[in-house]
Nucleic acid binder design. Structure first.
Lengths: 339, 339
DNA sequence: CGTTGAAGG
DNA sequence: CCTTAAACG
């Protein structure tokens, strides 16, 4: 996708965006795929026979809709090499895309205007996707779980990737709509929804299996091109990454095994961009339980990450947690990078 | 309950209501019961540890809330003997009492101010009943299904009955919260939710079994005192009782067997009060499928009835279908009687 | 607590 | 279409 865009001024950005749209439009003609449990959709081909989702006048969760105009969606920071970002990636565990749509969550996505948008826990069969998922200017790819209403990831991208891969060639995990890999000219983008270890850690073994399979898969890609992983990794890595580390050591997302899994992964040559930028920043969370009004008290967890190949770590301009965005129990995260 | 009340003027009626409230309050002290799947509750004893149901700003179904002030809840008609009513009974299949509460349905019940209120399909365990079910001035009795979220009936009564009976001594049906019998000094009041014959009539046999068991049960009561049955009887008796009789002869609620069951029951000495009052009134329905906006087109069924012992038929002043009341796929029905 | 599909209507 | 509980988070 980059380096075709110049983001040194807002005006340019808008102009380039229009160019991009036009370009994408002219490029997207046929080659629709319709295999087992993944789905590629396009504004140029096919109207899904999806029902229209009824709008309800309900605030985004426990807050009246945040005024999106008060948020700065741009980033003026330069990376370690001195460059402004030319690629913006947004990642959001929506916990049900249809619910988020009803809560006007797509408005956030449009306002963010990222080049790549990665959604997790879409929880929606492709034939039930409402009209609202069709965002103008994006190619979009949905990978659903065989188990309806469970898991599922989606990828929106302004530039059409060289290739899209659903899953990681593992029968168990690929039934659950947990990973989309998009290949671009000079990097891989991975949108991941990592298995939850479950109540009383009943699925911790499955989770640890994922850690192994996923690490092997990513290491393979990383040999070819740098990798950008984003998504809900379902682990708070260090004590700083959740409000109550002491009382959660036996709970899903903060067990020794899950934390070691993350350490192990990073040791294989990857960087947690947020923590690299803000090593001591506490109270920076991306998830809050719906229980007990945790979000209003900021009793949260940092479960959503950008992990990138070490060799592109100096390309990062910033990594923002959009904690003013409601509509899910996770908030979006945004990576600004020049690549 | 009657004959203690004089309803010849609105002013009197209001005054007497206050008297009644006071009287009931002074009468209600102890004798709470707490057996298997039924439940008696009281304003004087016990606060149920029920969660408060969140209010949502949603119109009653597909209509903005009906202005209850435009409805005449009184009745000036005299019965065949020349008397004004001294007893008002309201019956309503709420299709989920918690949903109806969220839609402000209890406001209707309060405004109707019936002496007896019979609800069907409450679909709520007693321990999940929200605060709003506690209506001031009423004794209330809930009979739930063992299968959670299914069936269930409730009875509200200003005057405390001599006796309350849950079910009809039949193991199968009494697990399903379908019948409450209240004994008053000079009549029995039965609140019934008759089994649905099901999609493709899969439960028609069960339904026909109910017809037999129920008829025997009622005939037993009728030997002692006159009987007033109300509720969702899940049958449209004659062609006039549904919009599309021709196309529904094989569907639950209008099969030959169900219709004959009703005829058979009436032949045992009971009167369908609405049809007795309005023998030729078409388009008078109490239920409309949620599908295809049936209610706005009045494509409905008359499934809710008052059936009374023939010997008190001349006591009836009127029977009204409150088709302006939304919040369920059924609307309430009201009986004005002097007894 | 909130989202989803399933059963029931 | 609409309500509910179950599974999952």
């Amino acid at each position: 996708m980059p380096p075709k865009r110049n983001r040194d001024s807002k005006e340019d950005s808008v102009k380039v965006k229009n160019d991009t749209n036009t370009k994408i439009k002219s490029k997207t003609t046929s080659n629709k795929r319709s295999k087992s449990n993944h789905h590629e959709e396009h504004k140029d081909h096919e109207e899904p026979n999806a029902k229209r989702v009824k709008r309800v006048a309900k605030p985004l969760l426990n807050k009246i809709d945040t005024d999106l105009n008060e948020i700065n969606f741009d980033c003026s920071k330069l990376n370690a090499i001195g460059n402004k970002y030319n690629l913006k990636i947004s990642s959001w565990n929506v916990s049900g895309i249809r619910a988020v749509i009803k809560k006007n969550g797509m408005e956030y996505i449009l306002k963010e205007d990222a080049d790549i948008v990665a959604l997790q826990e879409t929880k929606c069969d492709k034939n039930k996707l409402p009209e609202e998922v069709k965002l103008k200017g994006y190619h979009y790819y949905f990978f659903e779980s065989k188990k309806r209403g469970y898991s599922g990831v989606a990828l929106y991208t302004k530039e059409k990737p060289i290739n899209i891969k659903y899953g990681l060639d593992n029968a168990e995990f690929d039934n659950e709509g947990r990973l989309i890999t998009a290949e671009y000219p000079n990097f891989y983008l991975l949108n991941a929804y990592v298995p939850n270890a479950g109540q009383k850690l009943v699925t911790l073994p499955k989770r640890l299996k994922w850690n192994e399979v996923f690490k092997d898969y990513v290491k393979g890609l990383d040999k070819k091109k740098p990798v950008i992983i984003c998504g809900d990794l379902n682990v708070a890595h260090q004590e700083i990454d959740l409000k109550n580390p002491k009382t959660n050591t036996k709970n899903a997302g903060f067990t020794k095994e899950e934390r070691e899994g993350m350490t192990d992964f990073l040791d294989a040559g990857f960087v947690d961009t947020f923590r690299a930028l803000y090593p001591d920043k506490a109270d920076a969370y991306t998830f809050w339980s719906y229980f007990a009004n945790a979000r209003s008290k900021n009793i949260g967890w940092r479960l959503d990450y950008f992990l990138i190949s070490k060799r592109i770590k100096d390309n990062v301009c910033d990594n923002i947690i959009r904690n003013a965005i409601y509509g899910s129990d996770h908030c979006p995260i945004v990576l600004y990078i020049n690549i």
